[in-house]
Amino acid sequence: MSSPAAPAFPGSSPKAESAGSSRRRAGRRARRPTVAVVGAADHLGTLVTERLVAEVEAGAIGKVLALDVERGTAQHVTWRVGPLDAPDVAEQLRGADVVVMLAAPTDLASALAVPAAKRRDHAVRRAQAVATACAAVGAQRLVAVTSAMVLGAAADNPVPLPDDAPIAAVPDAGTVGDLLEIERVLARVHRTHPGVAVTVLRPSALVGPGVDTIVSRHFEAPRLLVLRDGKTCWQFCHVADLADAVATAVVQQLDGALTVASESWLEQDDVERLSGMRRVELPAALAFGTAERLHRVGVLPAPASDLAFVVHPWVVSSARLREAGWAPVHDNETCLGELLEEVRGHHAVASRRLDRKDAALGAAGAAVALVGTAALVRRRRGRRS
């Protein structure tokens, strides 16, 4: 049944609307589902949409709808273009049985270009509008892609974190804080729209063409920041593997929280060996204090709390997806190599080429590493003189 919170159609009573929704759902169960992708125009959206089109060809899905504020490049889908954060999104979702909402941050440059309050408001309004629209059009499932960052990065985290690990990230004004607010909206769906099942996929650090995140920018500094007496574990998720995970969740109708990542993880020594990069080692208090000062004076646009995600572990298991038959094609070594290739030399974000140093200052770990490296160079010069 549709939730009482769902907007009534003109001229219909809540009772009639509820009965109509039940009839629509019963009819849809007898045919292959129509799947709508919200946020289908960027690179991740294109991969997810094309992967779902493959399921149409395999006979598991009937049709794919692609929604965004502009038309993307995915073919063999029905494009519906318009705002995604307003009640009108219900019209774009008309006919959808399953809705995939992509909220995983992959374009840090664009995110940092928008004032934090405005960006947060847009993210929350979009999540609320899509959830409400799912109930209004009679969709049976909402599959949301956020990030394993919501589980938090901490020195005492178990390695790996299970699928049902509690949300423990520190609320902040950055993209992690945005994800926490989106997850709060998703957590209320079962109460406000009880007829809509919710699946949440939480990938580890994303890697792939065009991906720009606080983790990828960490590797744009001259050295890798390491905390003294700390332990860093690196785990990645290729966007193509994430697209496969979305298809698995949709086709197999998986419920609840699902983590997504490459098999196992890399130690800090492995990353330095594979990348050829050297470390700059700082005490935790100095590293976080430096990040906070840089953020306070406006040098670092991202919050200092982001630093935790490149110095503390937040490795995940992907256990439930593996039980469902999903397996990543890309291992962590391959993902690291692709990440390094993306940030090496010619790094472009949203079609705008960034200077290496300027790009690095977008992430706490890279900024602190730059400061730490500069201090190390000054100390060495002082010794020589």
Rank of each mutant, 00 (worst) to 15 (best):
E220M: 15
D331N: 14
D355P: 04
W79A: 10
D107A: 15
A285W: 03
A6I: 01
S2A: 14
R383C: 01
P33D: 12
L47C: 11
G138D: 11
P7K: 01
V176A: 08
R23A: 13
L376V: 00
A155W: 11
A117I: 02
L67H: 03
A111L: 15
Q235H: 12
R80G: 12
H193D: 03
A348G: 03
L336R: 09
W79S: 09
I214A: 15
T248I: 00
R344H: 14
V100F: 14
P14Y: 04
V315R: 13
L224F: 06
N157V: 10
T73V: 15
A257E: 11
Q128I: 03
S147Y: 13
R223F: 04
V48N: 07
P10N: 06
V77K: 09
R217T: 05
A90G: 14
Q268H: 01
A19K: 03
T232G: 02
D156H: 11
R217F: 07
E338Y: 09
P222D: 03
G174A: 14
T248M: 08
A133Q: 03
R32G: 08
H312K: 15
G362D: 04
R202K: 15
A169I: 11
G289E: 08
R125P: 12
P33W: 08
R120I: 00
A187N: 05
P194R: 05
T259Y: 06
T259E: 05
R29G: 12
A360D: 06
C237T: 14
A103P: 01
R120N: 02
T175H: 02
R23I: 14
L65Q: 10
D244G: 15
L151V: 01
S12N: 05
V368W: 12
A308H: 13
A104C: 15
E333L: 07
A369T: 03
G72R: 09
R125A: 12
K15D: 15
A165C: 02
E323K: 10
A287I: 08
V207T: 03
V64H: 02
L361E: 11
V260Q: 06
H76E: 07
R25F: 01
A284D: 07
W265K: 07
K15L: 14
S204C: 12
L201Y: 06
L93D: 01
W326T: 08
R51M: 00
A133F: 03
R24H: 13
V185Q: 02
G345R: 06
H122Y: 03
V185C: 01
L108V: 09
V280I: 12
V226C: 04
V38L: 10
D244R: 13
D244N: 14
V137I: 00
P313R: 12
G208K: 08
L274H: 11
V170G: 01
D68Y: 02
L201W: 03
